[in-house]
Simulated assay, not measured.
Amino acid sequence: MEWQTGLILLLAYGFGAVPAGVWVARLYGVDIQKVGSGNTGATNVLRTLGAGPALAVAAFDVLKGGIAVWIARGVGLEGPLLGGVALAAVLGHNYSVFLRFTGGKGVATSFGTLLFLDPWVALLTFPVGVLTMWLTRYVSAGSMVGGLAAVVVAVASGRPAWEILTVLALALLIFWTHRENIQRLQAGNERRFGERVEVGPPGNQR
């Protein structure tokens, strides 16, 4: 049973590590890690390539986290082990083995894992993050406030300790991957939602 659990955690990491943003950007002749923030997530894809590619990447990143949890639950994992699967998927996205342990910031994948882990908490949290993003026009602010909201909702609704700790760990990961954004927010030079990034020709992108 221990080796099976280890295999499922490894598969969850592998699901999360699939670099959808990199692959979609390559279809447009762009190395997404060399433009904008260098991030592989949907926000950088949006700023670089537009709404269509960004929606495709966001959907994939949500689903890969959710599918990892769904498969784990389907083979009987529950409780802390299921929380471990959620974290493994997000860590795979943030530190992908396919990208020399770089990647995205884990927001969409965190939402996907939470959506399959506890749909009620996820659906209550989502509008908070979106509203924050809409009011501030900062994706980073919406992401971090959404992470905090998930913790508050999980605690307030009396979720089990393992789930609260999982949600807290996901929120802390979001804050960690947004540490540079926090500095830019404090300095007043964070990019706002909708701002585009100039993309040069292949080999000369910035």
Rank of each mutant, 00 (worst) to 15 (best):
V107H: 06
L77H: 14
G65H: 03
V90P: 04
G79C: 08
A72E: 04
L77A: 12
L87C: 12
V90F: 06
G104Q: 06
V75K: 05
V75G: 09
N94F: 08
A88W: 14
Y95F: 15
A89E: 08
G103V: 04
A86V: 08
N94L: 07
W70H: 05
W70C: 03
G103C: 04
G65Y: 00
G83R: 05
R73H: 07
A72W: 03
P80D: 10
R100K: 15
P80I: 12
V75C: 11
I71R: 05
A68V: 04
A68G: 04
G65L: 02
G79H: 08
N94R: 04
R73C: 00
W70I: 06
L81T: 14
T102N: 08
V85K: 11
V90C: 08
L81D: 14
V107R: 07
L91Y: 12
A89G: 09
A86E: 08
H93M: 10
G84A: 11
A89M: 09
G104M: 05
W70E: 01
G66R: 03
G92R: 13
G79L: 04
A68C: 00
L81G: 09
K64Q: 02
V90T: 07
H93Y: 12
V97E: 13
L91G: 12
Y95V: 09
K105P: 01
F101I: 03
R73G: 04
L99Q: 15
N94E: 10
G65T: 01
A68I: 02
T102H: 09
L87I: 15
Y95N: 09
R100A: 14
V69C: 02
L99T: 06
L91E: 12
T102M: 02
P80G: 10
R73K: 11
H93N: 14
A88C: 15
F101P: 08
